[in-house]
């Protein structure tokens, strides 16, 4: 990302010249790739056939965009501050989440607790299963050949690539998700957080700590 775009300042170029006051060029004006056009074509055919409505499609897109790691963080912070909630979360995650108004989606869900003796991490070696209702869409690396191949065989090295060093004496469990079982990790509450309330604690919890590739850092 350095000077490879400098030629755009040449007025003879066919590139649209950037005028800071001009309305933004509409995304619609950029010709779609084959797969982008395919998504539109399939959606429109299904709407025409009455399989679902345009409203259903918009609502679903919006609903799924509202699924973000903040939901997983909220569940975690509640578990850290409410032992009864935590006990329920570890035995019946769907019901526990529903109690605080969080929908975990159609797939069954298990929450695995990290402790001083055991660290947990999730993967889907066959495809891309992920607790999408609690964390949103998964990052590209989660679906990569490298992560899916190696984290089940050499998890300590893979975690070290994320800057996480798990002590040799601490057990490391890798959970391979499927369409029939999703996992989320309950990270350990970091030191130095005794005075913090639930909302402050939730701020510390990151997506990657709920996947299990990192731990939750103490407040800076």
């Amino acid at each position: 990302m350095s000077n490879d775009h400098s030629h755009h300042h040449d007025h003879g170029h066919d590139h649209v010249h950037a005028d800071p006051h001009a309305p933004r060029k509409d995304l619609e004006d950029i010709p779609p790739t084959y797969h982008q056009a395919l998504a539109d074509a399939v959606a429109e055919l299904l709407i025409e056939k009455g399989v679902f409505t345009g409203g259903d499609l918009r609502d679903t897109i919006e609903y799924m965009q509202g699924r973000t790691p903040e939901l997983g963080a909220k569940i975690t912070a509640r578990a850290w501050t409410d032992p009864e909630f935590k006990a329920k979360l570890l035995t019946n995650a769907k019901e526990a989440a529903a109690e605080i108004g969080i929908d975990t989606g159609p797939a069954p869900l298990l929450v695995m607790e990290n402790t001083p003796d055991v660290h947990n991490v999730i993967v889907c070696t066959l495809c891309s299963c992920y607790p999408v209702f609690l964390l949103g869409k998964s990052p590209d690396w989660y679906k990569s050949r490298e992560y899916r191949s190696r984290v089940v065989r050499d998890p300590r090295t893979v975690l070290s690539e994320f800057g996480t060093d798990i002590a040799p004496e601490r057990e490391l469990r890798v959970h391979d998700s499927t369409a029939d079982m999703r996992y989320m990790i309950l990270p350990m509450r970091p030191e130095g957080t005794d005075g913090m309330d639930e909302a402050q604690l939730a701020q510390l919890v990151t997506r990657d700590s709920l996947i299990g590739v990192i731990e939750v850092n103490p407040p800076a």
């Binding site: 797969h35 590209d140 690396w141 990569s144 190696r150 065989r153």
Partner: peptide
């Protein structure tokens, strides 16, 4: 692919596009 050899994990991600 679980358990096969592969290179280091490149921690890539992107913002999802409308399509």
């Amino acid at each position: 692919m679980g358990g096969l050899d592969a290179g280091p994990v490149a921690r890539t991600e992107h913002n999802f596009e409308p399509w």
